[in-house]
Design a protein around this nucleic acid. Structure first.
Lengths: 229, 229
DNA sequence: GAGTGGTCTAGACCACGTT
DNA sequence: ACGTGGTCTAGACCACTCT
């Protein structure tokens, strides 16, 4: 009696994980569950909605609620600023700007960001250090048509990431992970051997339909991105 | 008037993304918002709760609700079965078992899974193909103390992943991504050059406190994992 | 048509944390 | 102490979709 939505959720969850309710099987409807747990239907509804969001059950009007046959496993990763990533490990963060130039966007970038022909872009290469050791190499392009103020921004002290976050805090992004080989330039930046396998993150972000930046982040050898679910 | 929680959510969202409500600023409380939108407080509450879940706002009792200064960026990845990953691309899936043996768990595995000394583990090496081309190499260890039935399972037709999902459908996991170099064996399995950079996923899963499996999945060169947020 | 989940309401009480 | 969000309730109506 007087069950909270958390009580209901965890009880149903345990019925599922224990195998008491088999994958694919039908779960009692909300009214029955409300009676079972002695609570309001809205309380059951919230518990069930969260379980559905977590990918454990599948709900359809009229057809009812079923335990997912093969649960949708999803992992969530926090995408922190490099500075935080480093400082959270208790290391000292240092940033440096390696190069800065204004270029007409190369073809691959125009394709990636859907830019017009001859569009100007600010090209930055930066390094992020943890306790003095190379941690991450950043190769960034900023769309000057959308962000003309980047032309006058000073990136020698503050990284473009932090500048961007304060300039356009909310945007949609496409992010992708892959493995790349250290070429000679990268090897020098990251103080590793040429040919080392490097974990790489690429991110393109948009704000209200316009692409504003593309960045390729390459981590020092051995870097791992970890999460639990 | 008669606003739904989706109306409220998207209106608040646009006030944030447009910069109308600056990062760090205080949002009106639920009662005021309910009056503004002409709906019940519960409706506003649901909208705000979802925005908080999405990492856009920060809520604290008594202190009120604020736009996050630096939004928590989080990406969600679906972790599909390889079979689905391949079939969803419209390619034909093929599986093969390369080796199967029962071994005492090596030290690194015992550490990773917190196994006792001399624990037996089933060691499987498998390949997953897309349209006949190598797609993913799977190096898996299954804890036989927890899953003794794996000893008699036939992994020649069905991959261990699918077997595990149907055997212990729900478990917690630790997953990590990295880049590794193709050694000679991997290069042969994946039909690539030795020294190629390979995207690698490692996953350890637990069920009710007991580790049941550890797997290292290595993708063919050039593989990317992509998502939007 | 009918059963199920999806959502809204008006009100209530509680839990937390700031002041 | 008090203001805010967190949650619950009992009831209502609606939207979807299966039969």
């Amino acid at each position: 009696m007087n069950a909270t939505y958390k009580d209901v959720k965890s009880d149903i969850l345990s019925k599922i994980t224990s195998g008491h309710w088999q994958p694919g099987s039908l779960i009692p409807n909300e009214i029955e569950l409300a009676e079972t747990y002695g609570c309001a239907r809205a309380t059951v509804n919230r518990a069930m909605r969260e379980l559905a969001d977590d990918g454990l059950i599948e709900r359809r009007r009229k057809a009812g609620t079923r335990v997912r046959a093969s649960p949708i496993r999803q992992a969530r990763f926090d995408i922190p600023l490099v500075r935080r990533e480093i400082e959270d490990k208790g290391a000292e963060y240092r940033y440096s700007l390696a190069s800065r130039s204004i270029e007409t966007a190369p073809d691959w970038l125009r394709t990636r960001l859907q830019l017009g022909q001859g569009a100007d872009a600010l090209h930055l290469v930066c390094m992020h250090y943890a306790d003095g050791d190379p941690f991450q190499h950043e190769d960034r392009w900023i769309n000057l048509e959308v962000l003309p103020q980047a032309r006058d921004a000073d990136f020698s002290q503050v990284g473009p990431n932090e500048w961007l976050v304060s300039t356009i805090p909310f945007s949609t992004a496409e992010i992708s992970f892959s493995a790349t080989l250290a070429d000679r330039a990268l090897a020098e930046y990251l103080a590793c051997d040429t040919g080392a396998p490097l974990f790489t993150v690429e991110r393109a972000t948009w704000f209200e339909g316009d692409a504003n930046t593309f960045v390729r982040l390459t981590y020092r050898p051995g870097h791992r991105m970890t999460t639990r679910y």
